[in-house]
């Protein structure tokens, strides 16, 4: 797909696939077009060119909520939590919305309890989300996405704002989810996390795909290193801090 904003080609002929049962990484310097791709996939942004498929179904002309009903869920890089609700309510409302359109009759309360447990939010379940530190709020978004029992999960920097231990736990969770057959597409700056959990990695730079392959290949790839070193210092080597600007 391609996306053009006025004169800027934000995404330039990128072909991307996320397979069931594995975590696929999508990395690249800031402004490479990762979030734009997510928006195109979920229907918040129309592509200038190209098509999007979920399974065999062409969803390019479907509205966001219709796509979500094909079992796709996402999180947001700029948080889109339901700030006036608690963590529990955030997840519960997702489960309820999902019950509204899906045929599976599960108890939203049970789903909520299970998800809270799984993403490790039990202790803060009844705190309002707008008072939470950003890392925790990201976990709420992850939990909310999981509450709709997706088969394709798009995560936009779920690890930023998490400390080293929390990031490890998140990695385990992602591997578990993939192990259960879910397709996980992960945008993440925490390179260590990406290298650990992803089987396949796509690298974007200035809207173009510059590399694709398993972690070892990507780490050795000169184009990738050049792209990163040109944009950010030693990003591939070190944990990247929160950048100041979009």
């Amino acid at each position: 797909m391609s996306v053009r904003f006025g004169g800027l080609l934000a995404v330039d002929g990128v072909h991307l696939e996320a397979e069931a049962g594995r975590v696929t990484g999508l990395i690249g310097p800031n402004g490479a077009g990762k979030t734009t791709l997510f928006n195109v996939i979920t229907g918040l942004q129309a592509p200038t060119e190209g098509r999007i498929f979920i399974g065999d179904e062409d969803v390019t002309n479907l509205k966001p909520h219709k796509r979500a009903r094909l079992r796709m869920a996402r999180t947001f890089q700029r948080l889109e939590v339901f700030g006036s609700l608690t963590a529990r309510e955030n997840i519960m409302v997702a489960a309820e919305i999902c019950n509204g359109w899906s045929r599976d009759r599960v108890d939203p309360k049970q789903v909520t309890t299970a998800v809270l447990e799984r993403v490790g939010l039990r202790a803060v379940a009844d705190d309002p989300v707008d008072a939470m530190p950003t890392g925790t709020a990201r976990l709420v978004e992850l939990g909310r996405a999981l509450a709709t029992r997706p088969q394709l999960l798009l995560l936009d920097e779920p690890g930023s704002g998490l400390d080293h231990n929390e990031s490890d736990v998140l990695g385990d969770l992602l591997l578990d989810l993939a192990g259960e057959g879910m397709a996980v597409l992960l945008v993440e700056h925490d390179v260590e996390l990406v290298m650990r959990v992803c089987e396949d990695i796509f690298v974007l730079d200035f809207g173009r795909l510059i590399a694709q392959g398993p972690p070892a290949d990507i780490q050795a790839n000169e184009a990738v290193q050049a792209a990163y070193l040109g944009a950010e210092n030693e990003e591939l080597v070190e944990h990247e801090p929160e950048e100041a600007l979009a």
Binding site: G43, A94, T148
Partner: peptide, 8 residues
């Protein structure tokens, strides 16, 4: 936006 991506 989040609601829509949850299928609402």
């Amino acid at each position: 936006a989040a609601c829509a991506t949850l299928g609402l």
